[in-house]
Simulated scan of single mutants.
Amino acid sequence: MDLKQLEHFVAAAEEQHFTRAARRMNIVQSGLSASIRALEQEMGAALFVRTTRRVELTVAGRVLYEKALQIIAGAQEARRAVAAINGLERGSLSIGTCASLNAFFDLPLLLGEFRALHPDVEIRLCHSTAANLMGKVKDGNIDLAFLPLYEKSREIVSMPIASDRLIVVHPLDHPLAGRECVSLHSLAGETFVDFQLDQGTRRIVDRAFASINVSRKTALEVGDVQVLLDLVARGFGIALVPHTFVTARAAHSTAPKIGFTALRKPVIRWDLVAIFGGRAGAAQSRNPAVAAFTEVLKRVRAESALF
């Protein structure tokens, strides 16, 4: 049984005439008759009493008629719902974000621009670590996420948002103070304050040290960059963080002061991206709102100094 058979059946039941029903459905009468016969065979019951002048529903036909109306109405509602989502008259968009990314872009501004264009799309926010968000995007539990890209995957598509370099931050009275730049190898004996293991910046730093076969000591692990920088300022260790975080902190005169030193080449890049589930060219097809959001993102990036 398919939807078209039910539509043919309903037309015949309401017209009480196969010829008129066929005209209403814009098919030949023989086609409509064959469709109804196939439906009767599948249902295992006669649905019409046929005479030379008209057709009437049997008891089984009357039962099916009520159900068929519900099924057809449900299918029409489903078509309307899909059309509304494709036209962004409704739908949802789930976004994941990591901590402290406001130094790189204005998420409320971005969401406000999207809401102004598509007010009926429900927006949901999820705040978590980069590793957790990466998994959620891969599994389809959220539509997109903003995070530091610590690994590439065939299961995701990434869109660049910002690029930065990692620098060494240290207490003002640390031996590194006054040094213009240092090598990664020279930091092997230092004590570090670091991010938690499932955060993107931590994974980038761990990978950098692993690539030169250097181990290091981590005294404290935190989840927030401002707490990390406060701990560094108070002498708990040094850290590797994006330069933009340090610049943003310097604008707040009440925060404890810290020193910073550049890394010698090759620098460690820190790339903030928006990621989507799927392969290149197909990521946005899962949810039309994702494609619309990326267009707003591109425009706001071009217009705003916060990107």
Results as ranks from 00 to 15, higher is better:
7 E>S: 13
8 H>K: 00
13 A>Y: 09
14 E>I: 02
16 Q>K: 14
18 F>V: 03
28 V>M: 04
28 V>G: 06
38 A>P: 05
47 L>F: 08
48 F>D: 02
53 R>D: 07
59 V>I: 12
63 V>P: 00
77 E>I: 11
79 R>N: 09
79 R>A: 13
83 A>W: 09
94 S>L: 09
98 C>W: 00
102 N>M: 03
105 F>H: 07
106 D>F: 03
112 G>H: 04
115 R>E: 11
121 V>Q: 07
133 L>S: 04
135 G>P: 10
136 K>C: 04
136 K>F: 09
140 G>F: 04
141 N>H: 07
144 L>R: 00
152 K>W: 14
153 S>L: 12
154 R>I: 07
155 E>D: 14
165 R>A: 10
165 R>Q: 09
167 I>D: 01
171 P>L: 00
172 L>D: 01
174 H>Q: 02
184 L>R: 02
190 E>R: 01
192 F>T: 02
192 F>A: 13
203 R>A: 08
211 S>D: 14
224 D>E: 15
232 V>S: 13
238 I>R: 00
238 I>H: 07
245 F>M: 13
251 A>K: 06
255 A>P: 08
259 G>E: 06
259 G>A: 15
260 F>Q: 02
261 T>V: 15
265 K>A: 15
266 P>E: 10
267 V>E: 08
268 I>E: 11
272 L>Y: 03
275 I>F: 07
284 Q>H: 08
288 P>N: 03
292 A>E: 09
305 A>P: 05
